[in-house]
C-alpha cells in the first residue's frame, strides 16, 4: 500500500508546486501589466511634452522638438497661473498642517468630551465629494458678498487640506513613545518646553509628510478651486481653459516637471527608508 501511496503523494506535490509556480508568476506577470497600464498615461504626458504639434491639437505624434521645454512659458497666462498655484499651495499647506497638527495632538494625547464628534468632523470633508465642498463654499461667499479671488481660493484649500494633515500626523503620533515626554516633565520642563524640545522634534517627520501631502493636494486641485476662484487662474484652471480649445504642449511640459520633482522627492524618501530597513535587519 505504502509503495503506491508515496509516488501518488509526491506526484500531487509536484503538481501543487507547478501550480504554485504558475500562479506566482501569473500574479507577477499580471502585476507588471498593471503597472504598465498605470504608467502609460504618464509616459504619454512626458512624450507629448516633446511633440511638435501641427494645429492646435496635441493628440497625434508629429515630431520631436525641444521648443516646448525651451519656451515653457510661451503661452500667455501659463506663468502667472503657476506662480499663483505655488503661492496658494505653500500658504495653504503651512496653515493646514499647523492647524491639523494641533488637532492630531489633541486627538492622540487627550481623552475629552467630543472626541467622537471631532473625529467625524475631520472625516466628513474627506468623504464629501469635492463638488459639494466647492459648491457649499461658493454659496457661503455668494451670500456674504465676498469678492472671489486669492483669499477665497486660499481658504478653500486650507479647508480641504486640514483633514489630510490631521490623518497623516495622527497616524505617526499613535506609535510615539510617551515616556520621553514624561521624562522631560520629571526633569522639570513645563508642558510648553516639553512640547517645543521633545514633542515637536520627534513629530517633525510626520509634520513634514503632512506638509508635502497638503502641498501636493493643493497644487493639483481643480474642482473646489473652479468654484471659488473668481477670475483668478491657477495652473489646473489654466489647463481646463486650454483644454477647451486644445491644450498646448507646454501644459505637458509643466505636468512633466511637477511629476519629476514630486517623484524625485518621494523616491529619495523611499530609498532612505529602504537603506534604513536594510541596516536594521
Amino acid at each position: 500500500m505504502s509503495s503506491i501511496a508515496v509516488p501518488a503523494r509526491s506526484r500531487r506535490n509536484t503538481l501543487a508546486t507547478t501550480l504554485g509556480f504558475v500562479r506566482r508568476h501569473l500574479l507577477t506577470a499580471y502585476s507588471i501589466l498593471f503597472f504598465a497600464y498605470l504608467l502609460l498615461p504618464i509616459a504619454v504626458v512626458i512624450l507629448f511634452s516633446f511633440n511638435h504639434p501641427i494645429g492646435k491639437f496635441n493628440y497625434t505624434w508629429q515630431g520631436f522638438t525641444w521648443d516646448n521645454w525651451r519656451y515653457w512659458d510661451g503661452v500667455p497666462g501659463i506663468r502667472s497661473s503657476i506662480v499663483l498655484s505655488l503661492q496658494i499651495a505653500l500658504l495653504a499647506s503651512i496653515v493646514a498642517t499647523a492647524l491639523g497638527t494641533l488637532i492630531a495632538l489633541a486627538l492622540v494625547r487627550y481623552g475629552f468630551r467630543g472626541r467622537g464628534t471631532t473625529n467625524i468632523l475631520i472625516f466628513l470633508p474627506l468623504s464629501t465629494p469635492e463638488i459639494v465642498l466647492g459648491a457649499s463654499l461658493l454659496t457661503l461667499f455668494l451670500n456674504l458678498n465676498v469678492v472671489f479671488g486669492f483669499w477665497t481660493i486660499l481658504i478653500a484649500h486650507i479647508m480641504f487640506c486640514i483633514s489630510f494633515a490631521v490623518v497623516t500626523v495622527k497616524a505617526r503620533l499613535v506609535g510615539f513613545d510617551r515616556h520621553l515626554e514624561e521624562a522631560a516633565m520629571d526633569l522639570g520642563a513645563n508642558e510648553w518646553t516639553t512640547f517645543r524640545k521633545v514633542t515637536l522634534p520627534l513629530s517633525a517627520p510626520a509634520i513634514l509628510a503632512a506638509l508635502l501631502l497638503c502641498f501636493a493636494i493643493s497644487i493639483d486641485d481643480f474642482v473646489v478651486t473652479y468654484f471659488n476662484s473668481g477670475n483668478k487662474v491657477t495652473f489646473p484652471l489654466f489647463v481646463w481653459g486650454a483644454a477647451r480649445i486644445g491644450a498646448p504642449p507646454q501644459v505637458n511640459v509643466i505636468g512633466t516637471a511637477i511629476f519629476v520633482i514630486a517623484i524625485t522627492v518621494m523616491l529619495a524618501n523611499v530609498l532612505v527608508q529602504m537603506r534604513r530597513a536594510k541596516r536594521v535587519s
Binding site: L39, Y59, D220, G255, V270, M274
Partner: peptide
C-alpha cells in the same frame, strides 16, 4: 515601498493632465 510609490505615481501628474493623456 517602491512599488507603492508606483501605485501613487499617477497622483503626481496633475489630475486634468492625466485625464487629457487618456484623451490622447
Amino acid at each position: 515601498n517602491l512599488l507603492l510609490l508606483f501605485i501613487v505615481a499617477p497622483f503626481f501628474v496633475t489630475y486634468l493632465i492625466r485625464t487629457l493623456a487618456w484623451e490622447t
